[in-house]
Amino acid sequence: MQFKDYYSVLGVEPSAGDAEIKSAYRRLARKYHPDVSKEPGAEERFKAVNEAYEALRDPGRRKAYDQLRARGYRPGDEVPPAGFGGAAPGAGGFDFEEVFAGGGAGGGFSDFFESLFRRAAGNGAGPRAAGRAHGMGDTRARLAVSLENVYRGDSVRISVDGRAFDVRVPRGIRPGQVIRLAGQGAGGGDLLLEIEYAAHPQFEVDGRNIIHSLPVAPWEAALGAKVSVPTLGGRVEVKIPPGSEAGRKLRLRGRGLPGAGGEPAGDQLVELEVQAPVPRDERQREAYAKLRDSFGGKWRQG
């Protein structure tokens, strides 16, 4: 299998901090999202960006990847299974298997990703192997599910140790909660699936609330507009009030993650990002000049 340079995919340096990696991911995911992008090969680029971010956003996975990269592998180099030799267990401190549900933002990863982060070493040594058995042969795995899975309460297909399972994701389940599959673990014990949320190209999570950054033109913010925004339940029309500034948050009540155990559903917060289009011709440059003159060249506050 071929080595992948996840830093190059995101267009960041290996020294990049978490905030820079996150910003690069959001920008590229928005650019190549299959629902909106007209770029050639957008779907494949979108998958590549998602995979790179999943590898680098988690400190343990990033450390494991960096150790493999430090061995001198470069894009296109063939990495034999032995080349992974213990990188993940010792480096990332993983003590259980990574499982990603198929489909959505969390699925469709390459063989390279799966070999490094799901079944990387397979040599039975180190903290990973010691942590796989709990009690009477119980097996722990970390299950990354999409926000859509959590919103709808989907059934997802997963594969653990070469065996496939259909798992129902309870609506509103939180990260860290565990789904127990009785009798499906190693040695006849239970399979314990600890939930985590897969990275999403359009939403961030804050408790039960989700946050969506919405790019708007200066005239939409200044004059008001009606725009279509994505939610976990589908697109809805949102009214931007006149005189809105960058960073203003519009609240869509009940459009966040569902509540569980009697908890109310969260909200969706739409954060406005005012973006000035680049003028493409003389007419547009003249329009910017008139705008500048109409404000007397003095618009900054403070």
Rank of each mutant, 00 (worst) to 15 (best):
95 D>S: 10
116 L>C: 10
102 G>I: 05
13 E>G: 12
149 N>I: 00
249 K>F: 01
102 G>E: 11
13 E>W: 00
43 E>P: 00
265 A>I: 02
120 A>M: 07
29 A>R: 01
240 I>N: 06
219 W>G: 00
237 E>N: 14
121 A>T: 13
178 V>W: 06
145 V>P: 00
197 Y>I: 02
167 V>C: 03
18 D>E: 15
17 G>W: 05
134 H>W: 12
261 G>F: 08
73 Y>M: 05
124 G>R: 03
50 N>K: 14
61 R>D: 08
207 G>S: 08
96 F>N: 15
41 G>F: 04
6 Y>A: 02
128 R>A: 10
187 G>A: 13
54 E>H: 15
13 E>K: 13
100 F>P: 00
65 Y>W: 04
255 R>F: 14
178 V>E: 14
196 E>M: 11
280 R>I: 03
144 A>V: 00
221 A>V: 06
267 D>C: 04
123 N>P: 00
48 A>R: 07
208 R>P: 04
194 E>D: 09
295 F>G: 13
53 Y>Q: 11
243 G>R: 08
17 G>R: 05
16 A>M: 07
160 V>R: 13
49 V>S: 07
91 A>S: 15
271 E>A: 11
169 V>M: 01
167 V>S: 05
42 A>E: 00
56 L>C: 09
62 R>Y: 02
63 K>T: 13
137 G>D: 11
231 T>L: 09
56 L>E: 10
283 R>T: 11
78 E>F: 14
168 R>L: 06
291 L>P: 01
230 P>S: 10
152 R>N: 09
4 K>P: 01
148 E>M: 02
21 I>C: 03
84 F>I: 09
74 R>C: 01
197 Y>C: 04
278 V>W: 06
224 G>R: 10
225 A>I: 11
299 W>G: 13
124 G>W: 03
24 A>W: 01
232 L>S: 04
31 K>V: 02
258 P>T: 09
10 L>G: 04
288 Y>S: 05
56 L>S: 07
176 G>T: 04
8 S>N: 07
112 F>T: 10
115 S>I: 11
226 K>S: 15
297 G>L: 03
237 E>F: 08
150 V>I: 15
117 F>T: 09
250 L>H: 10
216 V>C: 07
289 A>I: 14
267 D>L: 05
17 G>P: 06
26 R>A: 13
73 Y>F: 15
130 A>W: 04
194 E>M: 08
102 G>A: 12
121 A>V: 07
93 G>L: 15
54 E>C: 03
121 A>S: 15
27 R>G: 00
90 G>W: 15
41 G>K: 05
59 P>S: 06
23 S>E: 15
273 E>I: 06
94 F>H: 13
265 A>Q: 04
209 N>F: 06
163 R>V: 13
121 A>I: 04
141 A>H: 06
57 R>Y: 02
206 D>K: 09
242 P>N: 02
173 I>V: 15
225 A>P: 09
